[in-house]
């Protein structure tokens, strides 16, 4: 098996899938955020197994079927992808928006999922109706988003002169696509918090201790809704521990992966 990035058609939806490494099946759902670059982490994660990292319609280049407009649509797509690629005893890892998708998958079916690791996921509502659980990413200037997302904002290249057209286009598609799937209700599904009880696979919730997009308290509330889950903070990281503290994040995932190798049932 070799490393590869290519297009795949799943029941009419064209997606891009990157595959890296060898070993147990790991499905990595990246944050999708336009202010993060997780490409390096996918390589690191391949130290733990064979990583499949799909990119959903809208986030990857090409036309998008207008019916793709809800996080459920992506969750079902990746459940189909697991079947299509015959992935088994999957370690499902999702970060931020990708963590939301992972949670939506896990409440639907853990048939092929041996463990769920969520890194600073969004997707639930915990505060009252006047509380902004998740920072208003479309209402803040970029420098403020970066300040909230990173302990050290300089890890993210934000000077447009130093960025390729391809990367600028990726960011533009990501900014549009997060809105396509998560504009309103903003980055959450009002029903998900109640449905997290259905997650039957062992679950790890990792959180950047300095996350200013969604706070560690939000993370604890998330973990509290998944029976038997473990919550852990990653020191020195904001919303993207996999970018700011990749070694520590990988170590936490490695230990979790070692403990949970077979699907729940």
């Amino acid at each position: 098996m070799s490393d590869d990035t290519g297009q795949i058609d799943i029941h009419g939806a064209t997606c891009v899938v990157e595959t890296r490494g060898a070993g147990r099946d790991i499905l990595y759902l990246s944050s999708g955020m336009w202010f993060a670059d997780e490409s390096a982490f996918i390589g690191k994660l391949a130290e733990l197994g064979r990583v499949t990292a799909p990119v959903a319609p809208g986030f990857c280049p090409g036309a998008v079927d207008a019916r793709m407009n809800n996080v459920d649509d992506i969750a079902y797509l990746w459940l189909d992808l697991i079947d299509e690629l015959k992935l088994k005893d999957v370690l499902l890892v999702g970060a931020s928006f990708g963590g939301w998708v992972a949670a939506e998958m896990a409440v639907k079916s853990c048939k092929s999922i041996a463990g769920v690791a969520l890194i600073d996921p969004v997707g639930i509502k915990v505060g009252d109706r006047y509380a902004r659980d998740i920072a208003d990413l479309y209402g803040l200037p970029e420098r403020e988003i970066l300040r909230r997302a990173y302990v050290d904002p300089s890890v993210f290249a934000s000077d447009v002169k130093s960025i390729s057209d391809a990367e600028l286009a990726r960011r533009a598609r990501a900014r549009e696509s997060i809105a396509r799937y998560g504009w309103s209700p903003f980055l959450h599904d009002p029903k998900l918090a109640g449905r997290l009880r259905r997650v039957t696979a062992p679950t790890l919730v990792l959180w950047g201790a300095k996350d200013g997009v969604a706070s560690p308290d939000y993370g604890r509330a998330y973990a509290a809704r998944v029976k038997g889950s473990t919550f852990a903070e990653i020191a020195g990281a904001g919303h993207f521990p996999q970018v700011e503290k990749p070694a520590e994040t990988l170590a936490a995932l490695a230990s979790f992966s070692g403990a949970h190798r077979a699907a729940a049932y």
């Binding site: 479309y138 209402g139 803040l140 200037p141 970029e142 057209d165 600028l168 286009a169 533009a172 598609r173 900014r175 549009e176 997060i178 809105a179 396509r180 504009w183």
Partner: peptide, 17 residues
């Protein structure tokens, strides 16, 4: 106020670049 003049999806990704 930034970024309300560029709501996501209002302009295509090509225009945004």
């Amino acid at each position: 106020a930034e970024p309300f003049n560029k709501p996501p999806g209002y302009f295509s990704a090509e225009v945004a670049v």
